[in-house]
Design a protein around this nucleic acid. Structure first.
Lengths: 194, 194
DNA sequence: TGGTTCATTGAACAAGCGTTGAATGAACTG
DNA sequence: CAGTTCATTCAACGCTTGTTCAATGAACCA
């Protein structure tokens, strides 16, 4: 599945499609779904608005294409090590949050499609986390962990909270460690069962 | 500052204004700023769109009026008790989250005005929290606490995460307790500093 | 080379938006 | 009661939006 011949029609098309996709991703990420206009995307990609429609069908489809590039974090942990894996994943994501993921987050509160994407990803992630938590309320605990990660990510990357944006990923992860550990450990049940 | 005479012109105006404000709040909360239309608000309030403009000036001003009703959580805590007060405040807010606050949250990622409101409230709240934390990185800790609260609130009320929406406020607060406590306590420094 | 495909453009459409300003008629004021 | 205020409506403007469709010209294939 190599790139088509340079200068060929197919290659030119791919170049243009990618330019549009890039411009769209940038705009969706920067201002969200509603404030992004086909015209602005086309202009940023140095292309006619009609071409955007011709290639991607509709604004909604274009949005779908952009957010389809969002990697869904996979996580499979064994009980006891769950907290560390969660923190490691969070650290990694804080260091380099992909544009597609942030685009979804930016639009999730106003765009049903984005909300659904977030919901689906959250459900998968929560299921994986919950299975590693030895507690009756594992689902709730996983949901809270998810909420915490969501809040930190939004504050840091979208709201650009000064304190959070300036701090290093490991520093933030360190501060979250006690809470995540407690959430992933399950209920305390007196001194060392067994 | 009693209500004006019933049936009077002033009273009638107030009634209408309130009806518009209610409809606007509901719409802003439900679908956010961009998807809310003056026409829809007017229709819901059984009023002509022109009247909305006449009374509130512009859509942006109407939005301002709605979010001006959002209570800013005040918090002044002494070191050591900070965590409990934070958790108490969070519990309270989870039990009855005011529409205005949720409206701001809904729009904060796409509307600059809402983002500013969130930022301002967050800054004030963080300052209060930080002052009660005995640590060099108190600001960062306060920011993380804020982010956690933000994430939980969004997940619960806006994303309607099943697990979180079904759980009781106290239950969630209980799960959050270890993390918040650790954040508000400052760095551990060996066994019981005297 | 001649015909077809297709990337790309330009102009336009219909719908919806926020917003305006004149018109109406009932509530006020003197 | 006459005159003014003002809550409310109606119709319209100008703009932007997503979207469509015919036209163009270069790349492709036989």
């Amino acid at each position: 599945m190599a790139d088509p011949q340079p200068g060929s029609r197919a290659e030119q098309r791919k170049r243009t499609e990618d330019r549009i996709l890039d411009a769209a991703a940038q705009s969706f990420f920067a201002v969200g779904y509603e404030r992004t206009t086909i015209r602005a995307v086309a202009s940023a990609a140095d292309v006619d608005p009609g071409l955007v429609m011709h290639y991607f069908g509709s604004k909604q489809d274009l949005f779908r294409r952009v957010i389809a590039a969002a990697p869904v974090p996979e996580l499979s942990a064994e009980p006891g090590r769950a907290a560390e894996e969660i923190l490691a994943g969070l650290t990694e994501r804080m260091a380099a949050a992909p544009v597609a993921s942030l685009t979804i987050l930016r639009s999730m509160l106003t765009n049903p499609e984005a909300a659904e994407a977030v919901g689906a990803a959250a459900t998968r992630y929560q299921a994986n986390v919950a299975q590693a938590i030895p507690a009756a309320d594992a689902d709730l605990r996983a949901a809270v962990i998810n909420a915490v990660i969501l809040g930190v990510t939004i504050s840091r990357h979208l709201l650009r909270s000064d304190a959070l944006a300036d701090a290093g990923p490991e520093q933030i992860a360190e501060l979250l460690r006690p809470g995540i550990t407690a959430l992933a450990a399950g209920p305390e049940q007196g001194p060392e069962p067994e």
